[in-house]
Design a protein around this nucleic acid. Structure first.
Length: 437
DNA sequence: TTAGGGTTAG
C-alpha cells in the first residue's frame, strides 16, 4: 500500500515536470526528464504520454503528436479519451478538420468512449467549417448519450453562433440559458461582447459588459482588447485609446494584442507618428513578437515608406521560424505598390497564388488600385475579370481611379452596371464621380 | 487534455 502511494507521488512529480517543460516549449527537456525517470525506476504512465501528445501537438505537428500513440503501444499502454481529445483538439487548432473527424472515428473503432469534451471540440470544428446545424447536433449528441454539457459547451455554442453570423440568436440563447440556471463565466461574456460588437450591436455589447461587471466578474486582457475594438468600430477612437491606457495600468499589455489593436486603428487613421511611438513602447517593454505583431509592425514600416525596415522584420521572422500568412503577403504587396514598385507587387501576388494561398483578394485589390492610379486600366480590367472574389473594393477603386483620370464616361458606366448588379460602390468613389462631373 | 481578444485592400 505504502509503496503504491510513493509510486503515485513519483509519477505525479514526473508528470508535473514534463508538463512544465512542454508548457515552456522545451520538448527536449521534457523527453530528458522521462529518460531520467525510467533510469530511476519511475515509468511514464498514460498521463505522461497525454502530456507529450499535447506538447508535440502544440509545438510541432499533428503527426508528431500522433506518433506518441506508437510509443504508448510499445510501452504496452492503450490511449484513453484524453489522448484522443488532445489529438482532436490539436487537429482543430491547426484547422485540419478532416483529421479531427478521422481521429474521432478511430477513437470509436478502438472502443474509447468519447466524453463531453470530445463533442465540444467537434462542435468547435463544425462551427469553424461554417456548418452550424451539424455543430448544434453535437449538443443533442451530448444529451442523448446521457452526458451533461459543461459551461464550455455553451461558450463554444455562443461563440460559434456569433462567428457564423447569428449574434442575435446567440444573445437569445444566452438569455434563455441564464434564466434556466446557467452561470455565465468571463469567457461567456467575452465571446458574447465580441460577437455583438462585430455584428454592429454596440449598445447590446456595452450592456453585456455592464452585466458582466455587475455579476462580479473581473474584466481581463481579453475583455479589454474586445472593448477597445468595439470603440474603434464605432469610431470613438479616444475612448478606445483610453481602454489601452487602462490595460497598461492593470498590467494587461503583457502580449501584443492590445498594442496591435491600437496600432491597427492608428494606421487606418493615418496617425503614423503616434503609431511609431506605440511601436517604441511595445519594443522597449520587451513584448514577445509573434506573427500578428510582425505583420502590424511591417505594415507600419510600409506606411512610413521604410521598406528596408520591413525587410529587417522579415529577417527577424525568418530567424524565429515564423511563416508568412495572407496578412503578411498582402502587407508586402501593398507596401511594394505604394512605394511605386507595381511590377514587384504583381510578382509577389503571383507567388502568393502559386503557393496556393486561398485569400489573395485584398492583395489583388491593392494591385488593381495601383494599376488604376498608374493609368494602366487595360491591365487593371484584365486582372479584375480573372479575379476570384471581386468585391465592392475592386469596383470602387476602378470607379475612383477612372474618374480621377478624367475617364468619366467609363466611370459612370461602371457605376451604373454595379448598381444594376447590386454591387455597393463605396462613398469616396461615388464622390469622385460627382466631383469630376 | 480540451473554449474567448489583435494584423491586410479604396
Amino acid at each position: 500500500m505504502k509503496r503504491d502511494v510513493w509510486v503515485n507521488l513519483e509519477n505525479l512529480l514526473l508528470n508535473e515536470c514534463v508538463r512544465s517543460f512542454c508548457k515552456a516549449g522545451n520538448l527536449k527537456r521534457a523527453e530528458t526528464v522521462i529518460i531520467d525517470g525510467i533510469r530511476l525506476g519511475v515509468l511514464p504512465d498514460v498521463v505522461t504520454f497525454n502530456t507529450l501528445i499535447n506538447g508535440y501537438g502544440r509545438l510541432v505537428s499533428i503527426e508528431a503528436a500522433y506518433a506518441v500513440l506508437g510509443r504508448m503501444a510499445e510501452a504496452g499502454m492503450e490511449p484513453d479519451v484524453v489522448s484522443y481529445n488532445s489529438l482532436i483538439a490539436c487537429a482543430a487548432r491547426r484547422h485540419l478538420f478532416n483529421n479531427a473527424f478521422q481521429l474521432f472515428d478511430e477513437m470509436l473503432e478502438r472502443s474509447v468512449t468519447p466524453d463531453v469534451w470530445s463533442f465540444n471540440t467537434l462542435m468547435h470544428c463544425f462551427f469553424e467549417l461554417r456548418q452550424p446545424v451539424e455543430a448544434y447536433q453535437m449538443l443533442d449528441n451530448i444529451k442523448s448519450l446521457g452526458m451533461t454539457p459543461v459551461p464550455a459547451t455553451y461558450n463554444i455554442l455562443i461563440n460559434g453562433l456569433c462567428k457564423n453570423g447569428y449574434a442575435s440568436k446567440a444573445l437569445g440563447l444566452f438569455r434563455y440559458l441564464k434564466e434556466h440556471g446557467f452561470h455565465p463565466d468571463l469567457v461567456t461574456y467575452n465571446v458574447l461582447i465580441d460577437g455583438l460588437c462585430k455584428a454592429g450591436k454596440l449598445g447590446a455589447a456595452r450592456r453585456a459588459l455592464r452585466e458582466c461587471e455587475a455579476s462580479g466578474q473581473v474584466a481581463n486582457a481579453v475583455t479589454y482588447t474586445t472593448m477597445m475594438k468595439c470603440w474603434f468600430k464605432s469610431k470613438k477612437f479616444n475612448q478606445g485609446f483610453r481602454v489601452l491606457e487602462e490595460m497598461k495600468s492593470k498590467g494587461y499589455t503583457y502580449d501584443g494584442f492590445g498594442y496591435c489593436t491600437a496600432l491597427g486603428a492608428l494606421l487606418k487613421l493615418g496617425r503614423i507618428e503616434q503609431a511609431a511611438s506605440f511601436r517604441e513602447e511595445m519594443i522597449t517593454n520587451g513584448i514577445e513578437l509573434d506573427l500578428v505583431s510582425y505583420n502590424t509592425l511591417m505594415n507600419l514600416s510600409c506606411k512610413e515608406g521604410k521598406l528596408d525596415e520591413a525587410d529587417n522584420w522579415i529577417d527577424e521572422m525568418g530567424k524565429k521560424g515564423l511563416e508568412f500568412d495572407k496578412y503578411t503577403n498582402t502587407i508586402i504587396v501593398d507596401g511594394l505598390r505604394k512605394a511605386g514598385n507595381i511590377e514587384a507587387a504583381r510578382q509577389h501576388l503571383m507567388t502568393m497564388s502559386i503557393s496556393g494561398l486561398d485569400s489573395t483578394s485584398a492583395a489583388t485589390n491593392s494591385v488593381i488600385d495601383g494599376l488604376g492610379k498608374a493609368g494602366k486600366f487595360d491591365l487593371a480590367w484584365r486582372m479584375t475579370e480573372s479575379m476570384e472574389g471581386r468585391d465592392s473594393f475592386t469596383y470602387s477603386s476602378l470607379v475612383y481611379n477612372l474618374s480621377k483620370a478624367g475617364r468619366l464616361g467609363c466611370a459612370k458606366e461602371l457605376l451604373l452596371s454595379c448598381a444594376r448588379e447590386g454591387i455597393r460602390i463605396l462613398p469616396a468613389a461615388k464622390q469622385a464621380v460627382l466631383q469630376e462631373a
